[in-house]
Amino acid sequence: MTMRLRYEPSDPYVVRAAFTVLDSDEAVEWIIGRDLLADGLKGPVGEGDIQVRPVIDHDPRDVYILLSPPAGTALLRVSGRDVRAFLYETEELVPRGAETGHVDLDASLAQLLGGG
Rank of each mutant, 00 (worst) to 15 (best):
E91V: 06
A85M: 11
L93P: 01
Q51I: 07
P9H: 13
P95E: 01
E99V: 08
Y88G: 14
M3N: 07
G72E: 04
V83T: 00
I65K: 08
L112E: 11
T73R: 13
D39V: 03
K42V: 11
F19N: 12
G46A: 00
V52F: 11
Y7D: 00
Q111W: 04
L22Q: 11
V45I: 02
Y7Q: 01
I31T: 14
R53P: 08
E29Y: 00
I32M: 05
L75I: 02
A17Q: 01
T2W: 09
D11N: 13
P44E: 02
A98S: 13
R84Y: 04
S10R: 15
A85E: 15
T20G: 05
L41Y: 15
V63H: 05
D57I: 00
E89N: 08
E99I: 06
L5F: 04
V78R: 07
R81W: 11
Q51F: 07
L109P: 01
A18R: 05
D106F: 03
G116N: 05
R34S: 01
P70V: 12
E8T: 15
E91S: 09
T20H: 07
D104L: 00
D57S: 02
D11M: 10
A38T: 02
V15W: 05
D11G: 06
V83L: 06
Q111K: 11
A74P: 01
S68T: 14
V94A: 03
L22G: 13
G43F: 01
G97M: 05
D25G: 07
V45L: 02
E26F: 13
A110M: 11
L5K: 06
L113I: 06
P9T: 12
E89M: 12
D23V: 02
A85S: 15
G48K: 06
S24T: 04
P9A: 14
I56Q: 12
A27H: 04
R4S: 09
V28C: 04
L113N: 06
I32C: 00
S10K: 15
D35Y: 02
R84M: 14
R6D: 14
G115I: 10
P9M: 15
P60Q: 11
V63R: 09
D82C: 12
V63T: 09
D106T: 08
E47V: 03
Q51C: 11
A110H: 12
I50A: 09
L66S: 13
A74H: 00
D82G: 08
L37T: 06
